[in-house]
Computed example of a mutant assay.
Amino acid sequence: MPTSELTDAATSVLTPDEFTARLRALAPRYWDRHPFHLRLHEGRLSRHELRLWAANRWYYQRAIPRKDAAILANCPDVEVRRAWRERIVWHDGSGPGEGGAENWLRLAEAVGLTREEVLDERHVLPGTRFAVDAYVTFARTRPWVEAVASGLTEMFSRGLMARRLVDMRRHYPWIAEAGFTYFTTRLQVIADEGRSTVDIVVRNCRTREQQEAAVAALAFKCDVLRAVLDAVDYYS
């Protein structure tokens, strides 16, 4: 094939199906296959390990609405902003004692942590802090559609979350049912969010360069999530 044809093939815009397939092909990089998650689902974590996981995952949970606020600040599309702001409300709640972040705190309490020690972040590991802060910075500094694309881990998370709910109830029966509220409520919205996010990214990535940047953004997010588990796994 002549050089000019190779160049054209490399820069031609992917069809929506091709683009979506490229994004979905990153599924093996998601954190569901991390050794720590495998042990969690097999019931092989100690109470200490579960507490360390919950405290470090809290640092990620508390960063999500800040990431979403950065997307809102950078996005010029009013329709996207209207849809996206609901994510902040879901995590932060409409008032005290509400929202996904509050439900994660209840899980942390159910595994034996006090609310105080979670909120003061005494158990947050350097690797977790570095990775999560890098994710928020990415959302603030990169084009808004790349930041949205980074959140497409939603495509992979529903199956993992449903399985986690089953496995944790089975293997860790000492965790009070109220501790699982985050998962039960999240499962109700995550499928719709994942589909809408794919639609936003596909619709707004109009060049091959934008499409490749979106794929790279999702790969980066997968690396962020795995870095959090790397830190927890090392110190647990």
Rank of each mutant, 00 (worst) to 15 (best):
A214L: 04
I175Q: 11
V215R: 06
T207P: 00
E193S: 06
I200R: 07
T181C: 03
D199F: 08
P173H: 15
Q188M: 10
L218W: 04
R142P: 00
T141Q: 15
L218Y: 04
R158I: 12
G151E: 15
F156L: 10
M161V: 12
Y172N: 05
R203H: 10
M168I: 04
M161F: 10
V215S: 04
R203K: 14
P173W: 15
H171Q: 07
I200S: 02
T185M: 08
R169S: 06
R140F: 00
A176G: 10
D192V: 14
R208V: 05
A147P: 00
A216G: 01
M168R: 11
W174T: 10
R170V: 04
L187A: 07
P173A: 15
A176F: 01
N204W: 08
A176I: 02
S157L: 15
E177N: 09
G194D: 13
T197F: 11
A219I: 02
N204G: 02
V166K: 13
A178V: 10
A217N: 03
M168F: 04
W144E: 07
V189N: 03
R203V: 01
A147R: 09
L187V: 10
V215K: 04
P143N: 14
D167P: 00
T184M: 03
A216P: 00
D199T: 14
D167M: 13
Y172M: 09
Q188T: 14
H171L: 10
D192G: 08
T141V: 07
A214E: 02
F156A: 13
R169A: 06
R169Q: 14
A147F: 03
V148Q: 05
E209D: 12
V148A: 13
V145F: 06
P173D: 13
C205W: 05
G194H: 09
W174Y: 10
S196A: 14
V166C: 01
V198N: 03
C205Y: 04
L152Y: 05
I175S: 09
Y182Q: 11
R142F: 01
T141P: 00
G179E: 12
V202P: 00
M168G: 01
V201C: 05
T207W: 08
A216Q: 10
R142N: 04
E177Q: 12
T153E: 10
F180D: 08
E193C: 02
A191H: 06
W174F: 08
P143Q: 14
C205R: 07
M161S: 07
R164D: 11
R158N: 06
L165A: 10
E146W: 10
A213E: 06
A213T: 01
G194V: 11
R206V: 13
N204C: 05
E146A: 14
M168W: 12
L160A: 12
A191P: 00
T184Q: 09
L165D: 07
L187S: 04
R208I: 08
P173Q: 15
E177C: 00
G159F: 09
F183D: 14
V202L: 09
R195F: 05
T184C: 03
